[in-house]
Design a protein around this nucleic acid. Structure first.
Lengths: 235, 235
DNA sequence: GTCGGCACGATTGTCAACAATTTTGCTCGC
DNA sequence: GCGAGCAAAATTGTTGACAATCGTGCCGAC
């Protein structure tokens, strides 16, 4: 094993567990960590240049958010959501996000709208350039940004967790190549925000989430041997 | 320090961190752990008869749910919600629970209704007998039970977290002696469930949560030195 | 040739000692 | 008598080594 002092990416900064969790979150959102990927402690220690304890705590936090699964004595794996879990995630999102948008409509100020507009433009650029990772990340983060505008830290955290899990779900059940959201609907949401029409925004968010779920194929027979499936996908 | 082998309450079973978290959850719901209470590691080790590592992990999980606050090098304390956080909790609850009830109305079967009815009767008995702890616990758990009937594990977890935080909030801002909910509204909710009227149940849940919030006094001046306050409360 | 058992290697889980920081009580000086 | 400074004690944070468990490859028996 290599000396675990510093990692090549950021030699000066030593990561706190918050940052480690954040990095793994982002990697999951961008689908750089496909469901089922093993997250071995030693590998993460090298990657982040920290001790095992901090990695362990980070993995525990990620497991409590159901982003990773902890198998006793067998290690940590990126969560492989089942079709049922996928349905639950979307049901939860449809329960929370329409309300979050409605609140966001009331609380959004000029700065918020500017930030959101810039975000949308970045998203459009990423789509145009075929930058899939960026597109996926921004597409998911748009929803988190809306929750942030709503000004409720709890709901923001919930949305963030659900968006990340949605990325994992799309990684498992989405047609390969599809992005998370149709960005045209994001633009419509923005328009409703500008117009201050909370009810319309709320309803659009609901159908938007329904559209995303519709584009999935959740008919897979609850395959528990996911290792095989993704092994095939890789080869 | 005492030998940390077995605790008097349950000599045979050794607690997993799930159970430890659960116990602290329940204690917080029943307001046996007032906000600001210090949760020292050694004390918890004795209480549960487990090693320090497991306690540490449990506290981390509780902190990730914002039931406890972790102050670096100073220990773990039961969360003392600020008025702003209190408002956020109720806003989140009003965003989630009305939808949860609506779903529950659709999915409830005879068994669910029976369980709920029994729960309500227990609640009434506890109220009648002046068994404050039981009343508080059952009152909160009624909401969790509704989420469970809705059949969505994610939303159930969220509601459970929010209900627990609500107990802490009531402990801080509630008039002393008030219970969490007016149980008459719980009976009305049950009636709507039996009648299958999701819309009415959803609206009632919303106003029910508003009533709870209204009974609080959130005008406290964001006191950060909560230690003093609760010190006074105890003496 | 294939299946069951066995031992090895690797990885995770746990524990105990150590280091660092905070808190508390005391003493000294004013 | 009161407050600042200091020192001891207690508590938390971290590190390292050790124990337990699981996966894998090999070997022998049928």
């Amino acid at each position: 094993m290599r000396n675990v002092a510093q990692n090549p990416e950021s030699p000066t900064t030593s990561f706190g567990e918050e940052e480690i969790v954040e990095q793994i979150y982002e990697a999951a959102i961008e689908q750089r960590l496909p469901p089922g990927t093993k997250l071995s402690e030693s590998a993460l220690c090298e990657a982040f240049g920290v001790g095992r304890m901090r990695i362990r705590r980070s993995l525990l936090l990620l497991a409590s958010r159901e982003i990773v699964e902890l198998h006793s004595n067998r290690g940590a794996y990126v969560s492989s959501p089942t079709p049922d879990q996928a349905r639950e995630v979307f049901e939860a999102r449809r329960s929370i996000e329409p309300n979050a948008v409605r609140i966001a409509v009331d609380r959004a100020n000029a700065d918020d709208l500017g930030t959101l507009k810039r975000h949308l433009d970045e998203e459009a650029v990423a789509h145009r350039d075929g930058n899939r990772r960026q597109a996926i990340r921004l597409s998911g983060q748009f929803h988190v940004e809306l929750a942030r505008i709503a000004g409720n830290a709890i709901m923001t955290r919930m949305v963030k967790e659900l968006v990340t899990r949605t990325s994992l779900i799309i990684g498992m059940f989405g047609a390969p190549g599809t992005t998370n959201c149709a960005d045209t609907e994001h633009y419509q949401l923005f328009d409703f925000l500008v117009a201050g029409d909370g009810e319309a925004a709320s309803q659009l968010m609901n159908s938007h989430l329904e559209h995303i779920e519709t584009n999935l194929d959740l008919t897979a027979g609850a395959s528990r041997n996911v290792d095989l499936i993704e092994l095939f996908k890789r080869s």
